[in-house]
């Protein structure tokens, strides 16, 4: 079959049809109105498998406009397959400009990290969420967990943390660490490291969460209280790193461990590649910068 070139679009702007985008926007508005509450939505099939960010992609597709600048990160990096593919996807279906610079982006779709650079008003952070229900670990029945949210029946959440301490001597949950939104809903922040939890609190940016397979959207509007659950005698603590980034020398950022050889050689580098690159461009140097890695 041959198709003559025409002026007709072969796909709608941002891939999703307008009715679907309206449906998703309504879910997003509801989610913003009820911070932390999981709004069900009619998740669509996307041209990628579940688990690759279909929820986040649908949210992004529903809010993106021709003037937006999109950044996509995966575990903090702009250059992984997932990040590159999604960025390319929107460059193609929405013809938006893309960037790796946090500050230049109006929409940042993320898998498992929040950028180190503070987000500002007008920016939107879109999280890809695998399992939106923070209570599922202990209560598999969706009917029951929804009732628990409705009744603010959150004792179970602390049961989970109790078990952590009983087993490990400290709260060993290091990612998807449960938070309470605006003193009401307990929410799963998606599998971000708990290091990032404090960044969610009173953030100037709008935070949207999309779970494609689970068909849920939730949101944390700007300037919303996000409190990590804990015990009085085991207060919430962020991960600490013994050393600065080996490339840019940054401290107080989230580091990834990189194995260098099969003799135990390793280095710790910023997980946020954009942040690291900007620092290095500004002349910051870590212990292993400028040498073998750059070559």
């Amino acid at each position: 079959m041959t198709m003559q070139p025409t002026d007709l679009a072969t796909y709608n702007f941002a891939y999703l049809d307008e009715q679907t985008k309206r449906m998703i926007r309504r879910a997003i508005l509801k989610a913003i109105a009820i911070p932390g509450y999981q709004v069900p939505f009619a998740s669509r099939e996307m041209p990628m498998p579940y688990g690759w960010g279909t929820g986040g992609v649908q949210v992004t597709a529903s809010i993106i406009g021709p003037d937006d600048t999109l950044k996509v990160i995966d575990q903090g990096a702009d250059d992984t397959t997932n990040a590159v593919s999604i960025r390319a996807f929107f460059a193609k279906v929405a013809e938006v400009s893309t960037t790796t610079s946090t500050a230049d982006a109006t929409i940042i779709q993320t898998r498992h990290r929040i950028p180190e650079e503070k987000l500002g008003e007008g920016q939107i952070l879109v999280y890809q969420v695998p399992i939106p229900e923070p209570l599922r670990f202990l209560e598999p029945r969706e009917t029951e967990t929804r009732k628990m949210h409705a009744l603010e029946d959150y004792g179970l959440m602390h049961v989970k943390l109790y078990e952590d301490i009983a087993r490990n001597g400290h709260i060993a949950t290091t990612y998807a660490y449960p938070v309470k939104i605006e003193g009401r809903y307990v929410m799963d922040p998606s599998p971000t490291p708990k290091f990032d939890n404090p960044k969610m609190d009173q953030s100037e940016a709008l935070q949207l969460f999309g779970a494609g397979r689970e068909k849920r959207i939730y949101a944390v509007p700007p300037y919303t209280s996000v409190v990590s659950l804990d015990f009085e005698d085991y207060p919430f603590e962020v991960n600490r790193f013994d050393q600065p980034c080996a490339l840019c020398g940054a401290e107080g950022v989230y580091l990834d461990e990189v194995v260098l050889d099969d003799r135990g050689g390793r280095m710790f580098v910023c997980s946020d590649t954009d942040h690291c690159e900007k620092r290095r461009a500004a002349g910051h140097k870590g212990t292993m910068a400028g040498g073998e890695i750059g070559q």
Partner: peptide, 18 residues
Amino acid sequence: SAGANVGERLMATGARHY
């Protein structure tokens, strides 16, 4: 765990000291 089973009601009613 047994301890969490017993403690659940306490946590559900606001106990926050492990």
